[in-house]
């Protein structure tokens, strides 16, 4: 609905190394993702999809070209400015959950709020609410070691949405889960996208997981090989 796309790649190149050893991860990508979309990024390893994810998540910057996020040239910001951007507008979900060990679910979820300077009691309230949204009432004081993989990923999702971000970046969120757990997580992400209007960009290599997304982009050798939208997704 918004005029400018949320995410805009403009001839984005990303190379690593120099001279003979130079590796080309992205070769002039043009891409636009609007607010409210649920996009799956697919492709074999080395196709550049992870690099693209890192740039989308403001963790990395292009070697050349522009990366626009919410209308700002995010690719030109220094690391601390990008940290602010991530903290305010982006939530992350990883394949390996990446929760702090020996730290309760509630404390893990509170973490991004600490860097926002939210007061302790308010942090706790927001964290409890986010945990309830992902269906983890009663598990707030469990540490990751006391939770199953699916539950840990739910904690990670709660941590990602507790700041009410505009964008959720998910890097193979079901990669460590069995089929049943995977579909539960995907249903959760789908409802966050449809009910809360959260924009989701997800990397996966499983077609049935990608099928949850309204748009699938396939990467190959640093280029976009295909970009298809599901017909029923308006």
């Amino acid at each position: 609905m918004s005029l400018a796309p949320l995410i805009a790649f403009d001839k984005v190149w990303k190379t690593y190394g120099h001279g003979e050893a130079e590796v080309r991860a992205l070769a002039g990508i043009d891409l636009a993702i609007d607010e409210g979309e649920f996009v799956a990024i697919m492709g074999p390893s080395g196709s550049g999809k992870s690099t693209a994810m890192n740039i989308v998540g403001c963790l990395d910057t292009p070697t050349s070209g522009h990366y626009g996020f919410m209308g700002t040239d995010a690719g030109r910001l220094d690391r601390n400015r990008r940290a602010v951007l991530r903290n305010l507008y982006i939530g992350f979900v990883f394949q390996g959950y990446n929760l702090l060990p020996r730290t309760t679910a509630a404390e893990n979820v509170e973490l991004p709020l600490i860097y926002r300077g939210v007061a302790a009691h308010e942090r706790r309230t927001l964290a409890m609410k986010a945990l309830a949204e992902v269906g983890l009432e009663g598990r707030e004081h469990h540490t990751p070691a006391e939770l199953s993989g699916g539950q840990q990923q739910r904690v990670a999702i709660a941590r990602a949405i507790v700041t009410r971000p505009t964008l959720l970046v998910a890097d193979e969120p079901t990669g460590n889960l069995d089929t049943a757990r995977s579909h539960e997580i995907m249903q959760l992400l789908t409802s966050l996208n449809q009910d809360a209007g959260l924009t989701i960009v997800m990397v996966t290599h499983e077609a049935d997981i990608a099928a949850y997304a309204g748009r699938t982009i396939a990467f190959r050798d640093g280029h976009i090989a295909s970009d298809t939208k599901k017909l029923e997704a308006a």
Binding site: N80, A83, N87, L111
Partner: peptide, 16 residues
């Protein structure tokens, strides 16, 4: 290192 990575990813500044 991994903990630091998580903290940085979710918005910690260098100074944090």
């Amino acid at each position: 290192t991994r903990e630091i990575g998580i903290r940085l990813a979710i918005g910690a500044h260098e100074k944090h």
